[in-house]
Design a protein around this nucleic acid. Structure first.
Lengths: 333, 333
DNA sequence: TTTTATAACGTAAACGTTTACGTTCACTTC
DNA sequence: GAAGTGAACGTAAACGTTTACGTTATAAAA
């Protein structure tokens, strides 16, 4: 059985109030009793019960984080940033995998509410009206990562997808390419789909290049397998392409893999630039030129906003800078 | 302000005991009052306070999971399995990143103890005497994943590394290779290092092949960069090699990358088999033949053991089966 | 009709903290 | 010497549950 503050008080011949005071170093005791209390705490190996604390303080020092998928590298890196910063601020994080599923999400939100978490971080997923309703009822700070909500006033931290996609396409253009296709996400996805397409289009238009819609291959998701099939499909339509902007690293790697099977050489025949800069971008053969999203920083920034909000300060949404990471998947023409 | 059980009781004209009873469906109330209570719970949107519950029940329905690294794919997959099974059993999981650092680990264990988690899952890291001391004092179930402890009686779930490494090497031998090297982890690592080397040696000896120690390249860690340098170093010593068993997929991918730079063709010049079967094994060019560890199952199995232990049953350690996944990085001779 | 058993509740203590408030006591201050 | 002041404590209520135990009413049994 864990010793309680009562045990400490009894052994130290003081009241529990005094023990509590030295524990939270508030004034109201002499140096001598402080030492006495500290010593018996040490002797007993006393650890304050955070549950009891949470009950009276109405604060659990715990935040809930909701991911659409927890096995991906992207989530892993964001989680890493979140975990580090949270720990720095004395907060624990409960991970939840929504699997992009409404019921699971709602169930999780209920659990998190019952556990009285101090805040919520919602990652890479669209906020439905229903979710927002629940957020409001929960009455705790919510911050969005790698997503944003046009309909609901929630603070977010993300990169500017349009700008980033523009930068990727622009790089291809500056390297002398003129036949540039895109492997995109779902155009109806207003967060990660549409803006990247827009960025690509912007760069193409600006350079006076073709804006033909058939140059854009809409993929079902951002995953590897979609990259494989998307590349084939896109190249079948447009064999003249010398460069492709892929809206995710996984799509890009899928494309590289498909190219390899067709004996299309990267980057000699076709140049590719990816998006995300996951660990695997560096491991790819050839190493992938890509747009880096600062995932860890996004995570830690979100936590910083979270603690600010919890402390009653207000937090502003943040657009974090992306970065073009040049490796070997683009060839100058 | 969240409504409490008191509010429900008052509005329903019953005592809090009755409300509590219908909440936990224990006997002691009529069908009519049950409906009445349920209705006012619905009206108020009442959610029981898990903190208060935890205080009296001495049970938080939360387990702590300690990872040496949270950004890696390996951890991500294990976490996925853990999270899913935990949620299934109504448990939440708090993730902790020890960074293989003593102070961080100890700090985290303290936090988890203060938060009164019901159990601990310790992943992919060696259990020091000091850690074990703390586990004992915490007096909650601990289960190990992808690691084990020879000195301490802790239940674990992992694969048989020696067998798995044997199977990998054996596959190379059966494909007609005789000059087979190994890129290994730290031989002093009794968990992931030594047993895999032993498995390799066993297969080599059994086949009557060379057991020369210089055929084994000990890498600093299991990471990509070590694979790159390790491959170069190994091939410089033994240019006659036609096959390599790498003790991790990352090492294997690093080797493939280094080979690419030296214009050594995989698998035509050198065959490679990896270990882990991470997502990137499939994405590699060429796709990597490797030993699959069932990470998700390992995670969920660990949670199952955890809940058994919490319920007072005892749990037996589990060796989960590995599997050889054949892709395109090995060529028949 | 009286007794007894049982269903259907209510009361209050307990879980381990924090904190407002009250008390004691030694020192100043006049 | 009396009054006032502040430091150094102690007391007890509160946080929101669960649950052992006590109470009441109702129905069955004698």
């Amino acid at each position: 059985m864990n010793p309680t503050i009562q045990d400490v008080a009894r052994l130290a011949n003081v009241s529990i109030a005094t023990v509590s005071r030295v524990l939270n170093d508030q004034p109201g005791y002499s140096e001598k009793t402080k030492q006495k209390v500290l010593k018996t705490i040490e002797e007993l190996g006393y650890q304050p019960n955070a549950i009891a604390r949470g009950l009276v303080n109405r604060k659990t020092s715990t935040i809930g984080v909701l991911f659409p998928s927890v096995s991906g590298l992207l989530s892993a890196e964001i989680l890493h940033g979140i975990e580090a910063k949270a720990h720095e601020h004395g907060n624990s994080v409960i991970v939840c995998n929504t699997a992009e599923n409404r019921e699971k999400t709602i169930k999780y939100l209920q659990v998190l509410q019952e556990k009285r978490v101090d805040g919520l971080i919602f990652v890479s997923e669209a906020v439905t009206d229903e979710y927002y309703e629940i957020f409001s009822r929960m009455d705790i700070p919510v911050v969005l990562v790698s997503t944003e909500s046009y309909h609901h006033p929630l603070p977010y931290v993300k990169v500017d997808d349009r700008h980033a996609a523009y930068a990727a396409t622009r790089h291809l253009i500056e390297e002398g390419h003129t036949n540039i296709g895109m492997m995109a996400g779902d155009p109806d996805d207003l967060i990660a789909g549409w803006p990247r397409i827009e960025g690509y289009r912007l760069a193409m238009r600006e350079a006076g290049l073709s804006l033909d819609d058939s140059l854009i291959e809409p993929c079902e998701s951002f995953q590897y397998k979609d990259g494989k099939s998307g590349f084939t499909s896109l190249m079948n339509r447009h064999s003249e392409l010398t460069a492709i902007f892929a809206a995710s690293d996984e799509l890009a790697i899928g494309a590289i893999s498909a190219a390899y099977n067709k004996s299309i050489h990267i980057p000699d025949d076709v140049s590719i630039v990816g998006y995300d800069n996951l660990l695997l971008a560096e491991m790819s053969v050839p190493p992938l030129t890509t747009i880096a999203q600062p995932f860890q920083r996004m995570g830690s920034r979100a936590v910083q906003m979270m603690v600010d909000l919890i402390n009653g300060e207000d937090a502003e949404s943040a657009i974090l800078p992306h970065e073009l990471v040049i490796r070997d998947s683009v060839k100058r023409r």
